[in-house]
Design a binder for these strands. Sequence first.
DNA 1: ACCTGAACACCGTTCAAGT
DNA 2: ACCTGAACACCGTTCAAGT
Lengths: 209, 209
Amino acid sequence: MTATPPLHLKPRKRPRQARATVTLDAILEATIQVLLSEGLHRLTTTRVAERAGVSVGTMYQYFPHKQALLYALNERYLDIVAGKVETACLELRGASTPEMVEALVATYWQAKTERRDVTRALYRSAVELDNEALIEAFAQRVDAATTAMFGSASDATYDDLALVNATLLAVIFGTVRNVFERNLPAGLETDIRKQLTIMCLCYLETARV
Amino acid sequence: MTATPPLHLKPRKRPRQARATVTLDAILEATIQVLLSEGLHRLTTTRVAERAGVSVGTMYQYFPHKQALLYALNERYLDIVAGKVETACLELRGASTPEMVEALVATYWQAKTERRDVTRALYRSAVELDNEALIEAFAQRVDAATTAMFGSASDATYDDLALVNATLLAVIFGTVRNVFERNLPAGLETDIRKQLTIMCLCYLETARV
DNA sequence: ACCTGAACACCGTTCAAGT
DNA sequence: ACCTGAACACCGTTCAAGT
């Protein structure tokens, strides 16, 4: 599913008893809650443990250090987003290019906008992380899904599909993040999303063989 | 030059004597050095003070807290990048749209690529910051410069220049950051830059009135 | 006007002791 | 097999004392 992550960031052990699973979920749930309510710089092992209803020691049985908490959170989140993109791509096999671009931008934008607070918090939390493996795994899944989709387009074929696809993804993902970080008025945000779609479309038009 | 930043992030006082100016510069220089050599999570007030050759107490006379160090660094950096974009835009007044797009992408890309380590470190350091004011000031300067430039194009006029311009900036800045974060092979990076230029160009073609 | 560094509150992480 | 929490090293920040 995902590329093997750096060992030191993985949970220390997998739960073998029911209560351990409960504990692990409680810790992750507490992490996102503290992150949202207190912010990254007030995300403390003590606070997370307290909120999860366990001792710090217990936390360290499951996660080798604080960063591993954020790593797990990002992993879960990126897995969900990648899944949504994959589903959308499968549904669109054989469709027309405009439909594909429209749906790709809409799906990704929607996935990020659904819970703005979570998206923002995770964008920020990812900074202290050795997150290249995470991003890479995500990129590869999405890349495979969209390449297959555009390759099946009913109205166009591309000379260098790999490059065209990589460009599209960099532009879409990058633009969404940029817009997100600037906290623009809702109206302008929507307008930019529409323009982005137009832009991708005319690019694909140009790139057709 | 820049919008007024949150007060709590500004240096505590401006130096009034020569040695104080030296001290302030030494602290900022030490900050970037420690950031580059040790990484964000090992950037410690003690370490910065030591490297700068002053005591922690002195550091706190100039900066109210650790974040203010990173804030100052980002401020200086964004000021330089904005300046480069402004200069390029002025030089291109009255040129053709293709020249403008090419130069805009090249200038920004170059500014970010020149010192990849610094760019990366600052992207990351900005996360814990209340950096909206900083980003906003940067965005406004650049927006004004590029709007004026595209408004002066010899070969095209645009119906909604403000929106077209905002879209272009979001796409270019966003894509550059995305590419940067993924650490792609140099060849692919260059290819994406070229594709990005093509994409912006055909978008402007479509957006002409 | 500027600098020092010991002192304080808090944080990440460990580990001997428990159930 | 899982959990506890006191203990340790370190970090951000302050402030009384110095030049």
